[in-house]
Design a protein around this nucleic acid. Structure first.
Lengths: 227, 227
DNA sequence: TATCTATTCAAAGGACCGCTTGACAATGCT
DNA sequence: AGCATTGTCAAGCGGTCCTTTGAATAGATA
């Protein structure tokens, strides 16, 4: 014990876990799974890769202990192994944003320009919800809304947002949110609303941060006969 | 904006930062640098690699934004870019320990068997220091002790421990600590002390955890003419 | 300036990674 | 039982990573 070889092997073990996050596609998968479990085909669609390749990457995450699976009917659902994996992902994301020089440019290229004025902080939103003069809209896919959302939020998934936008009252400010600071769904919703003359802003971060701050959330429970 | 290509590039950026930690030797380097800055030759010795290879890995860490350099005379010192990098490393280490199946075996092979009874928690040690019936010994290299140590601790680096052990009073319990839960220096010191009939335990984790918990620390300040 | 020291760079090989394709396995449905 | 759906596996390729070796560079010292 205490020898070089054993120490190298141990730290190779730590390295293996980091390596599991060391690929853009796997990073995207983790970022989606932070929202809750999803099956392989959905995840493949989410990261724009073939099912085979997505399955390959998911197995890599599972082998490193970062993800676990569950089978239901003939679908396989993957989710993060624990809340701590989500925290690891957040820590990595934040360190990368703080210290990796190129990341600002890459983020700007993906997200577009964000004005400070267009954002609502968690604390401000909490107050506004208490007052009741705001409508909170969750623009993530329905499955993610069901797995957990800001208490009182209404679900309008991004892909149907343009159609259902008119069902929102016109005289109240709307706050849209999605997966987190690197998710563009809420930005697009806000842009769309403003083009229609509505007052709208985006929550500065997303649902995982809200949950992590232990602010009020709701979950949709499916009951009755399983179809 | 919001297109596939830009999103892939952004997440590749996150992946690059994870990849920087995704190698056993670089993981070891980070683990050492958590204790404070060190120059290349020291780090090479610490991880048992050639200077050239160590320099290569350090540049990789620097390129990812995880480490920064400082030149003094003709030595180059590397240190972590910020406290948050240390937190990222801790998060990775803990997730790996919690979820990666093989890691327990690898850790046991390196560290040897640790009994619960041989460990002192931070809170217990704080109380014992207040009472004053314990001697705290820092067995890390002198440079790391100088960069920061538990307030009131005495420095006896592991490589001179066997010799200087006799200078410790015989009738007081001794608590040894080092770099963290995966550092074996304190274990070896405790084993040595017990073989000589002393009462000794190890702190359950190490100096970084102590500092992170904002418990009292001291730093050695070098003053006077620089030699 | 010449010399020494500490670090970095460049090249090269062998190993590993990531994506695609096509086949295979497991389960559900009729 | 037979077919459809979903996910996994295997082979292969092009590219990247890790280590070694030896040379080049930057700064310190004489």
């Amino acid at each position: 014990m205490g020898n070089r070889e054993a120490k190298d092997a141990l730290f190779d073990g730590f390295g293996d876990v980091a390596k599991a996050l060391g690929n853009g596609r796997r990073a995207e998968l983790v970022d989606v799974m932070v929202q809750g479990e999803r099956h392989v085909e959905e995840l493949a669609d989410e990261i724009g890769q073939s099912v085979a390749n997505t399955s390959f990457h998911l197995r890599a995450l599972a082998a490193a202990g970062l993800a676990v699976t569950r089978r239901d009917k003939n679908r396989v659902y993957y989710r993060l192994a624990s809340e701590r994996v989500a925290e690891l992902w957040t820590a990595l994301r934040d360190v990368a944003a703080a210290h990796h020089a190129e990341l600002d440019d890459l983020a700007a290229a993906y997200i577009g320009k964000r004005e400070q004025l267009d954002e609502v902080s968690r604390s401000e939103l909490t107050k506004r919800i208490a007052v009741g003069d705001v409508i909170v809209v969750d623009v993530r896919p329905a499955a993610e809304f069901a797995a957990g959302h800001i208490a009182g939020a209404r679900s309008i998934p991004a892909d149907r947002f343009a159609k259902e936008l008119r069902t929102l009252p016109a005289d109240v400010e709307i706050v849209a949110y999605c997966r987190g600071p690197y998710c563009v769904l809420a930005d697009e919703a806000v842009r769309l609303l403003r083009r229609r003359g509505r007052t709208a802003r985006r929550l500065a971060d997303g649902f995982p941060e809200w949950r992590h701050a232990r602010l009020p959330i709701e979950t949709v429970v499916v009951s009755g006969p399983t179809v």
